[in-house]
Design a protein around this nucleic acid. Sequence first.
DNA 1: GTGAGGATCGTCT
DNA 2: GACGATCCTCACA
Length: 195
Amino acid sequence: MTTQRKLLPRSFYQRSPEMVAHHLLGKVLTHHYRGEELSGRVIEVEAYLGLTDPASHAFIGKTARNAVLFGPPGIAYVYFIYGMHYCLNVSCLPDGEPGGVLFRALFPLKGLSTMARLRGLAENAKPKQLTGGPGRLCEAMGISREAQNGIDVTRHHSALQIFDDGYEVKTITATPRIGISKAAERPLRFLLTSP
DNA sequence: GTGAGGATCGTCT
DNA sequence: GACGATCCTCACA
């Protein structure tokens, strides 16, 4: 089971957000936080298509906030929402074409006690309480806009990276996206049914 | 167990 | 000046 883990290359992200979202399930998100490794398996994501998707931040055109989505693929896009939460995305498609994938939930693997502390929870907190939700997983992983927006997740020395550890994905379920008001009916949310 | 409402601020009009 | 790719708490059943 413990095969060598491989850092996902930029070409992995240079595809449509739907494809990238689909293939990101089961991969491992890792953040080097103050000398400690925090990591979790990706179990829920959503695709945001760009100029053709009214729910996407990129739909309105390029602005200071969403510039990362219009840049090269494989870059972390972190934004602040509702005055209290951060959400983590990774950019997709070639340079110049906007698109991204939102990380909605992880299954925590390493650094559980640090995650619990960052979330303000007890050591024995359930995975869902720790990293089940876009805002929660950012808090648990120590991710903020100032520090992580614009980071290249395909570089070997990046604080934020995504690996393939050989985990075999069994069943993927597609459902409508959560918490949006426009184009809410499109099935662009993907999740693993058995982590 | 389920549902309503509040917190709180960066970003765009 | 309005609103949002959310989360938490507190009623009520």
